[in-house]
């Protein structure tokens, strides 16, 4: 469900599902948690392939941020359409900085 790579010390997690809803949120959360437990504190979540996120998916992203802790950060790249709208509607764009793409997010985080 999630592919990952490390760029300039930043963990980039690319979600390969079109939908992150209540059916997939538990596995999504488990996979993300496993990735950050390797000790990464700077994480970019690439949602460019995702077309739909519901409150369960959003809750899993929030849970991941809590797991990373206050000294780390989690940014979102490539959110468009309904996904971007959900972040803004719930004010979660104040928590997760939204970047146009992974390059911009990594640049910002690594810089």
């Amino acid at each position: 469900m999630i592919n990952h790579e490390v760029r300039e010390g930043v963990l980039v997690a690319r979600v390969e599902e079109k939908r992150v809803d209540a059916a997939r949120a538990p596995d999504f959360k488990t996979e993300l948690t496993r990735l950050i437990e390797d000790g990464h504190q700077q994480v970019v979540l690439d949602l460019s392939k995702v077309e739909f996120v519901d409150s369960s998916g959003l809750g899993a992203i929030v849970a991941t941020l809590k797991r990373i802790g206050p000294r780390g950060s989690l940014a979102v790249a490539g959110a468009t359409g309904a996904v971007e709208r959900l972040f803004k509607l719930t004010r979660m764009d104040k928590v997760f900085p939204l970047h146009e793409d992974v390059d911009a997010a990594v640049r910002r985080m690594a810089g």
């Binding site: 519901d54 409150s55 809750g59 509607l89 004010r91 928590v95």
Partner: peptide, 25 residues
Amino acid sequence: RFDFDETNIESLPEGGMGLALIRMN
């Protein structure tokens, strides 16, 4: 429901957002 303190990550909601989203949409 989304009137949280964004600087306090422990205060962020992980659930109980569905009905609020329905009302808002």
